[in-house]
């Protein structure tokens, strides 16, 4: 029967492939979708300049990437996790439980987080963290009293802002960007408006007050976007009144549709972020499994290539794309060259 033959040969192929699946010569990377563009640029240049195959870079978010990173050591686990935030204690512990003990942390540069709106929309040109807090927090201070957020228009709490409905598209909780948004904008605004003081005065413990500071209102004026920046852009496109949170590189690629607002009077550019003037920025990282160095061909070359001056320096392709070059790149380079793990750093 020809069917029998087909089935038999198909099964044979599957069996042979399964046994041949032991050697891997590509570097496997997964993690933050913010780091993905940079990692793909490096991977492409790496494939062009070295005799190794181009590494595979998957996206999926910092947390998902680090989770896969911590699954264990071996060829069917990833070698590098990209992250738009530092690894957490909990994740280091999860890693250690699965035998991933020696982790090299590499900081590749800084990323700015910008507030942008439709090009022809209302004049959202200058924000303070306090404005964002007043617009998006569930509880705000009005006349010295902590009350449920009564505001529906920006001009109600800051006469300089446009008289239009509050609507903001912010990154969802699975994004590393959300953490920076909470820390550098909401928490700062909470303190600046006096809400933090009012909360502690009303008998809240300090931790509870800090948690309450970074909450956002749930009446539909603040919308979590779990997808990518393209989704935020599409929402902004159809809502003239809305503001959205983007990465600097994404904004710079879409200046034909978006206009950016200053934060605390500083315009976001690679220069202002590098100088530390623009307040909302965060470091980007990737994490290497030391156990895979020397096992997966080209892994160390890739890491060294990533942080080399040609790539991550101020005039390299990453900086052209929107990454803010790390002033301490030389330290990172020597750290990668010496394969210094996180434990030995602390």
């Amino acid at each position: 029967m020809s069917f029998m033959k087909l089935t038999a040969s198909a099964l044979a192929v599957a069996a042979v492939s399964a046994t041949a699946a032991s050697a891997r010569d590509q570097i496997q990377v997964a993690g933050s979708s913010t780091v993905l563009p940079y990692a793909s640029i490096v991977a492409e240049a790496f494939g062009e300049n070295f005799d190794f195959p181009t590494p595979v870079v998957e996206s999926g978010g910092s947390s998902a990437g680090l989770k896969r990173f911590c699954e264990g050591v071996g060829e069917n686990t990833i070698d590098i996790a990209n992250a738009s935030r530092a690894i957490r204690e909990k994740e280091i512990k999860a890693c250690a439980d699965n035998g991933v003990t020696d982790i090299i942390q590499v900081r590749i540069g800084y990323d700015g987080i910008v507030f942008a709106s439709q090009l022809d929309g209302p004049a959202y040109t200058a924000f303070e963290p306090a404005d964002i807090y007043n617009a998006l927090a569930p509880k705000v201070v009005v006349d010295g009293e902590l009350v449920d957020n009564p505001y529906t228009k920006w001009s109600e709490f800051n006469a300089d802002l446009p008289d239009s409905e509050i609507l903001a598209f912010i990154p969802g909780t699975k994004h590393g960007t959300r953490e920076v948004f909470e820390e550098k904008v909401l928490a700062a605004g909470c303190e600046a408006t006096g809400a933090l003081e009012a909360m502690t005065a009303s008998g809240m413990s300090e931790d509870d007050a800090e948690d309450a500071c970074i909450a956002v209102r749930t009446d539909g004026k603040s919308v979590d976007i779990d997808g990518d920046y393209t989704e935020t852009l599409a929402r902004i496109d159809s809502n003239a009144n809305a503001i959205g949170v983007f990465g600097l590189a994404f904004y710079e690629n879409n200046t034909d549709a978006l206009k950016v607002a200053t934060m605390s009077g500083v315009e976001p550019t690679t220069e202002t972020i590098a100088a530390g003037d623009y307040p909302v920025s965060r470091p980007l990282y990737f994490y290497i499994k030391k156990a895979h160095l020397g096992v997966i061909p080209g892994l160390k070359d890739y890491a060294e290539f990533f942080v080399s001056d040609d790539i991550a320096g101020p005039s390299g392709p990453l900086s052209n794309y929107g990454l803010v070059s790390d002033p301490e790149l030389a330290d990172t380079q020597s750290m990668v060259a010496d394969e210094k793990t996180m434990g030995s750093n602390m």
């Binding site: 997964a30 991977a43 195959p53 181009t54 996206s59 999926g60």
Partner: peptide, 22 residues
């Protein structure tokens, strides 16, 4: 299963690689 991302940057060389390479 890891097939979305910056992945399809190499052509597989050969039949076995076609099934097994990312």
């Amino acid at each position: 299963i890891g097939m979305v991302g910056y992945i399809a940057s190499n052509f597989p060389d050969g039949i076995a690689a076609g099934f097994l390479d990312p």
